[in-house]
Design a protein around this nucleic acid. Structure first.
Length: 205
DNA sequence: CTACCGATTGACT
DNA sequence: GTCAATCGGTAGA
């Protein structure tokens, strides 16, 4: 991979749209992360939308607090939060104060694979970033990146892939994984049959 | 200060 | 399939 990989970050306007549409269109884009140890990046293959209204599973459902403040800020920022002693990475969508976000659940590793293997302590490529907390470990994402501006093209950002988005027939939809409320909402999006997608087998086909 | 929870993971039957 | 360890953040005493 060249030093210029993976090119320009998506603009704020990409995120400043309906959260479900952003969640769907993030599939196939490249999540990029640089540290002093180098670049690690991969193709996003699984996302979940968390809605600003009528979604009790959304962290913003009971109003703003110190932890979820990034969700109430401008679109195109990171929202990083802890769960079960691990980190999860979201991108904030829609206008400021609306508080919706997309959870990035899995990427297909493309660059910096040895770095990811070292961080994860294992070699198996399909296990490096399959799941939201595994992804964060592989990319060295933690709370220090909460609120980070993803349109700057530094530290962490998202870029369009030259192969373009996946066609609709390759995209699956299901209930969100692990949420204990609002289970009736089908807000998880994934690339059908992709081995880097998380969750039980029946939710990957 | 303590109690409790969770958008998870990995080990195990 | 089941299950418990994990710990940062929040709520409440």
């Amino acid at each position: 991979m060249s030093e210029r990989f993976p090119m320009d970050p998506l603009p704020v306007a990409f995120y400043d749209r309906d959260v479900v549409r952003v969640a769907r269109e993030l599939l196939g884009t490249l999540l990029c992360r640089t540290t002093r140890h180098g670049l690690a990046a991969g193709r996003i293959v699984e996302t979940e939308a968390y809605l600003a209204a009528d979604d009790t599973a959304c962290h913003a459902a009971r109003g703003k607090n110190r932890k979820n403040a990034s969700m109430f800020g401008p679109p195109g920022r990171a929202y990083v939060y802890p769960i079960h002693a691990r980190w999860c990475f979201n991108v904030v969508t829609e206008p400021r104060r609306v508080a919706s976000a997309v959870l990035i659940r899995a990427i297909e590793p493309l660059a910096g694979i040895p770095l990811m293997q070292q961080r994860r302590g294992l070699d198996q490529r399909t296990d490096l970033a399959r799941g939201p907390a595994r992804l964060c470990e592989a990319l060295a994402i933690d709370r220090r990146l909460d609120g980070w501006n993803l349109s700057r093209g530094r530290r962490v950002w998202i870029a369009a892939d030259q192969d373009g988005p996946f066609p609709d027939e390759r995209i699956g939809c299901s209930p969100r994984i692990g949420v204990t409320s609002a289970a009736e909402l089908h807000l998880r999006f994934y690339v059908r049959g992709n081995p880097y997608v998380s969750g039980p087998q029946r939710l990957r086909v």
